[in-house]
Design a protein around this nucleic acid. Structure first.
Lengths: 110, 110
DNA sequence: TATAAATGCAATTATCTGGTTGCGCAACTA
DNA sequence: TAGTTGCGCAACCAGATAATTGCATTTATA
């Protein structure tokens, strides 16, 4: 029942990725978000809950409305995981030692 | 049955992410990979199949062994999706117009 | 040649996931 | 105050997922 929420699992769903893009531009309510998709407001609400559980979004209350906005800092975690791979495709021909060191370090920290 | 494979779904699984890290350092066989996890070789094989379906890994045959290696180029797709968000956390205080333009462009291209 | 090893595939199963509908509650509004 | 709106939560359901076991095939080895 207590499913461990994970940022990678959060962005696995295309609707959630679209939500992140939308609220990156402007904080939005569940109702406003739902208008952009072919699903119910409740379904969007569940997606927002998942995003909130892994701290990718935060709420801002305004009367009976709830504006969801992006927690941009959390997105860095994806970037961090990607970093050693980025080195691989950027410096494929040199600095290989550095790349391997970073990868091994990341693996040991697991 | 024909589940649409997606790179974001592929990296949603922690075992698959670990596999990517391992083979980034060195091409490995399913048996060798399986030794690093608490699952059967067949389970690892299924993960490799998922990764192969979205072209994150490629095979290199060697007798009865199959070495899996990373398709580093495919990882760029994650990076590409992340790019506008990276702009947000790097240039939070300026160039906001550029960020929004990128996001909207990305959204229109869906 | 007989045996062992490396691998993929099929069938099965328990669990997770994303969606729906129905409901209750708090907050606006006429 | 009565009705409407915005929202989250619970129950339910079909399909997807990850893991297991069993098996067939190909290649290496004794």
């Amino acid at each position: 029942m207590e499913t461990r929420r994970d940022i990678f699992q959060a962005i696995a769903d295309p609707t959630r990725r679209a939500i992140l893009v939308l609220i990156a531009m402007q904080a939005m309510t569940p109702n406003a978000l739902a208008e952009h998709f072919h699903t119910s407001r409740q379904a969007v609400s569940k997606h927002l809950k998942v995003l909130a559980e892994c701290e990718l979004v935060k709420q801002e209350l305004s009367g009976r409305e709830i504006y969801y906005q992006l927690e941009i800092g959390k997105m860095k975690e994806i970037d961090t995981w990607l970093e050693p791979f980025r080195q691989l495709w950027e410096d494929r021909f040199n600095q290989l030692d550095t790349v391997l060191a970073t990868l091994k370090k990341q693996q040991n920290e697991k």
